[in-house]
Computed example of a mutant assay.
Amino acid sequence: MGRGDLSDQEWARLEPHLPTNVGRGGRWKSHRRVINGILFRQRTGIPWRDLPARFGKWKTVHDRHRRWSGDGTWEKILRAVQADADADVTAYRARACEAACLDRHHTCCQTRAVCDEGGMIARAY
């Protein structure tokens, strides 16, 4: 894995939202390698033809990027990943509120922190 490539954690969040090979004439090459190639090209600004060989054929990377841009796949992936991130934040806030409310007497007396309806911890002064 090169510098700037998707980490295993990033890939695990992204992979479920990617298109599958179902109904296509041929098998797609590794989505991860192709996406890393797209990200490399976006990050460096190099021409498609100068894409390093470790990302596969430049034409494959270019065509997948062009296809996904045209058919709305990138927008669908973005919305799905944003929804996952929002769910993570909501769960984190709920856990933080629950932890503060478990020891409400100590929390309220010592730090004056109280849970609001949105699940966040607010300071009441």
Rank of each mutant, 00 (worst) to 15 (best):
34 V>L: 09
34 V>M: 06
34 V>G: 04
35 I>L: 06
39 L>S: 06
40 F>S: 02
41 R>V: 08
46 I>G: 03
48 W>F: 04
49 R>E: 13
50 D>V: 07
51 L>F: 05
52 P>R: 02
52 P>D: 03
53 A>S: 09
53 A>W: 06
54 R>Y: 08
55 F>G: 00
59 K>G: 02
59 K>N: 14
63 D>Q: 09
63 D>H: 00
63 D>K: 01
63 D>S: 05
64 R>N: 11
64 R>W: 01
66 R>I: 12
66 R>A: 15
68 W>C: 13
70 G>D: 06
70 G>K: 09
71 D>Y: 10
71 D>G: 00
73 T>Y: 08
73 T>V: 13
74 W>D: 07
74 W>E: 08
76 K>I: 07
76 K>V: 09
78 L>Y: 11
81 V>T: 02
81 V>Y: 01
82 Q>L: 15
84 D>E: 15
85 A>N: 07
86 D>V: 13
87 A>L: 11
87 A>P: 01
88 D>V: 15
89 V>C: 10
91 A>L: 12
93 R>M: 07
93 R>V: 03
94 A>W: 03
95 R>T: 13
98 E>P: 05
98 E>M: 11
99 A>F: 13
100 A>K: 12
100 A>E: 15
103 D>P: 01
104 R>W: 15
106 H>L: 15
111 T>I: 11
111 T>H: 15
